[in-house]
């Protein structure tokens, strides 16, 4: 089982991002996704700088993948997307069908992100024939459905041509809107947002009126309030044919979480992350339950 580091979903300032990736190059992860996937107004790094940073990481021996914007509305966003797709060497993760279109036109292989709606083997097969060599299922896809999809993929004879990655740790992206909810929380409009999201390196927490953590606001993206932890299920995932587990960056304890996970995988056991996760954990989607719930599994993945 390989470990991947997802793109930083929050707006971290330039210095923090550069420092983060300088350190990440030394972490025991196999793949690093880079790029702004949430809001095109965020400019901590310019597009050319993202590409150069990804090339540097690639030269250090890890796979670097350029991850693209999920909600694309403006022509300027399509231009940025085209530059990422034209980078000339690095794999691109398509998070919108616009990226699939551009990459397919250039006959380039691509990774399909979890924002593409792939719920069955026919869709998976179609995109595989278009050049998709890796996919991350939607975060709400249950284990049983993933097992069925991968079973059909094997029967249809294309399963071997495609790697499966599971979003396994972090706040899950759940929804995308035109509206910026972080700006709204400060009574600002998106067009004059003053980059409020810089204040929230792990997103802005939302609680119900009876004080249960519900959501995490990240600009136009709504995320789970709970932290997904499916790293406990890596052995079951491996048996299903999953090749990578994705860890989505948070500002605290990340290096320790990655090291613990790497060691646990190396030693063939479940990683112990107690004390390293702020707040409640969740894993309900994997077990066919509500996403915010936690299901005790004993690592059996049933």
């Amino acid at each position: 089982m390989k470990i991947s580091l997802g793109p930083v979903l929050y707006y971290w300032p330039r210095e923090l991002l550069l420092d983060f990736y300088a350190r990440a190059a030394g972490w025991p992860v196999d793949t690093i996704y880079l790029g702004e996937t949430v809001c095109s107004k965020r400019r901590a790094l310019r597009t050319a700088e993202w590409i150069e940073l990804a090339r540097e990481i690639s030269r250090s021996g890890k796979q670097a993948v350029l991850s693209t914007l999920s909600l694309i509305e403006a022509e300027s966003e399509l231009s940025t997307l085209a530059r990422l797709c034209d980078n000339g060497e690095l794999l691109v993760e398509a998070n919108d069908m616009a990226a699939v279109h551009l990459l397919n036109e250039k006959h380039l292989p691509f990774a399909g992100g979890h924002a593409l709606n792939i719920y069955n083997s026919r869709s998976l097969n179609y995109l595989q024939r278009q050049g998709m060599i890796r996919w991350t299922p939607p975060v709400e896809l249950p284990r049983a459905t993933l097992a069925a999809v991968l079973g059909e993929a094997a029967e249809l004879g294309f399963g071997e041509r495609l790697e499966t990655e599971v979003f396994a740790f972090g706040h899950m992206p759940l929804a995308y809107s035109a509206r910026c909810f972080t700006a709204r929380a400060s009574n600002l409009q998106k067009d004059s947002c003053e980059f409020e999201c810089l204040k929230y390196p792990d997103g802005l927490p939302v609680y119900t009126q009876d004080d249960k953590r519900l959501l995490t606001l990240n600009g136009i993206q709504s995320q789970s309030g709970q932290v997904l932890n499916l790293l406990t299920e890596w052995q079951d995932m491996q048996q299903l044919g999953v090749r990578l587990v994705r860890i989505s960056p948070l500002s605290k304890h990340l290096e320790t979480i990655i090291e613990h996970t790497h060691t646990a995988i190396h030693e063939g056991r479940m990683p112990e992350l107690t004390g390293l996760i702020d707040g409640e954990s969740c894993n309900g989607y994997w077990f066919g339950q509500a996403g915010h719930q936690w299901v005790e599994s004993m690592g059996s993945g049933s």
Partner: peptide, 21 residues
């Protein structure tokens, strides 16, 4: 709907059932 339709999993996050699923 204020979220991009087809890309909203708030309902399944709360209940396990969503428009897509």
């Amino acid at each position: 709907c204020i979220m991009v339709e087809g890309r909203c999993q708030l309902s399944s996050y709360a209940t396990g059932k969503s428009p897509n699923l």
